[in-house]
Design a binder for these strands. Sequence first.
RNA 1: CGGGGCGUAGCGUAGUGGCUAGCGCGCCUGCUUUGGGAGCAGGAGACCGUGGGUUCGAAUCCCUCCGCCCCGACCA
Length: 574
Amino acid sequence: MLRMSSLFLRTLRDDPSDAAVASHKLLVRAGYIRPIAAGIFSWLPLGVIALRNVERVIRKEMDRAGFQEVHFPALLPKDPYEKTNRWEEYGPALFRLQDRKGSDYLLGPTHEEMFTLMVKGEYSSYKDLPLSIYQIQTKYRDEARPRSGIIRGREFVMKDSYSFDVDDEGLEISYQKHREAYVSTFNRLGLKFNIVSAMSGAMGGSKSEEFLAPCSTGEDTYVLCPKCGYAANVEAMTTKVEAKDFGNPPAMEILDTPDTPTIDSLVEVMNSKYAANVTGADTLKNVLLIADGQPISVLVPGDREVDLKRLEANLPGVQELRLFEDADFAKRPELVKGYVGPQDAKKFGLKLYADPRVQVGSHWITGANQKNKHMRYVTHGRDFTVDGFIEVAEVREGDACPSCATAVVIDRAIEIGHIFQLGRKYAQALDLTVLDKEGKARVVTMGSYGIGVSRAVAAIAEQSHDEIGLVWPEEIAPAKVHIVATGKEDLPFATAEKFAQQLEETGISVMLDDRKDASPGVKFKDAELIGNPYIVIVGKGLQDGKVELRVRKSGEKSELPVGDLISHLTKLIG
RNA sequence: CGGGGCGUAGCGUAGUGGCUAGCGCGCCUGCUUUGGGAGCAGGAGACCGUGGGUUCGAAUCCCUCCGCCCCGACCA
């Protein structure tokens, strides 16, 4: 039982000045967490209870799915991470340190290597697989920009699982099992979420999905179809293009278009000078970039911007991507800034990619590769060909859903889980093999699956609060029932105490506000701020043999005869 | 890493060159009060982020560093 008279808790009347999002403000105000450094927090008793409650739900679901819990240190030697090249690859986000002898260590940002080695140390036969193991552990990532309280911290609690299978079919089954376990976990946590595909098919074999909890302060943007439920990361959204007959356009024609380096200015001149009656969508934008040192050109309709994130996600194998700068144009005088067209791309040695909207047969108004000149009727397939279609244009609200063509909406969310078919990358690098039936060594295939545990606390707070405080689901709340004793007589306190005892005996956790020196107003405000699901007020109603029950979420209030309270609550609480 | 903002008591803040750094919340003591963050009286609590400089005089102006927040880049 949590007694407010002695609970290590101090609620704050004002929002902390450095908090911007609701979960951060409320968790600090209600005394769940305190800031220590950027992206690093300590947890007070109420916070620890809520966090443990989230962990408990996750453990139950993991165990129910047959996954086994293990535990690794956070402090890890460099060697395994050297073998997979992540000591380098992880870059500045990795917390590195040395021991007294000067040996390199790191604080684990994620544990693929360690899990792989653990299995390698114990198992060596196909008969031992499949296997799924997990841990709940503190992770460290030196984020470039921690933000939003515990939504993106540098130290955070994560549940990470890894599956081990002999073959791809096995991996698929393990992956689906995790997917189902995640669905029931997040349901029990009371989170609204969407599962979105995180990688496009163009990336190749690895499959990955994210669990996103919609909320306005989330940092992920995703696409949702209101009709069929299609959901995807903006990077993974695919473009639906209707096949069209463009007829037989006239031959390319060169036009004088002085002073038209932008799409807007071009459309203006086309319409005023040539009465062409066109919009930006009739023009073709040629965006020049440097991909790993090589110049590439990307074609999108003039009314669309290039989304660099989408381009990068869909350009396999490219490490470094940036837009052409003035220095690049200076080196390539044949590429005239503002007047570039695809018809000379081959001659210029440019790799050419097109948004799917730039279909074969379509014709466009585009740059003539001469200053102050454009061309029209530049036709895909006749006047230029591309090296490939690629998802590169910005995604907009109202774009067609790839599966049912309904207008999609764009929404924000917090990523609360990510499941991933890793394949053999880590097993290969660390030489995790098992012998198959024929006695031949086979590299194991793996999946990795993560849930942000501390982040889930924030996500629940984000999705479930109001102006006056937190509103926890039963499974997560520090206590199921918050009993407030008011007045200065002894009777309400004694009665409240009795209720609390009885409820605890039936397994219902209670927070009892037995403070003698606090006014009723203070107790009510605190109860609402802290956010336990049921609030019982034992006070002046006692004269008539009544107590008051309030449901935090709905705000619903009712008076109950003293004798009915316990049975009523046991019925309400599952 | 680029751009912006901020650092004054546990929290929220006032103070833009001048005397003992002010207020609210919280905290302590006493009295009073107990169904919506009560009242009165008294009190404790601040190297004004750090280091340097300008000045007769600096929380206040200038520089360094540190820290925090926001936007962006980044985010297995």
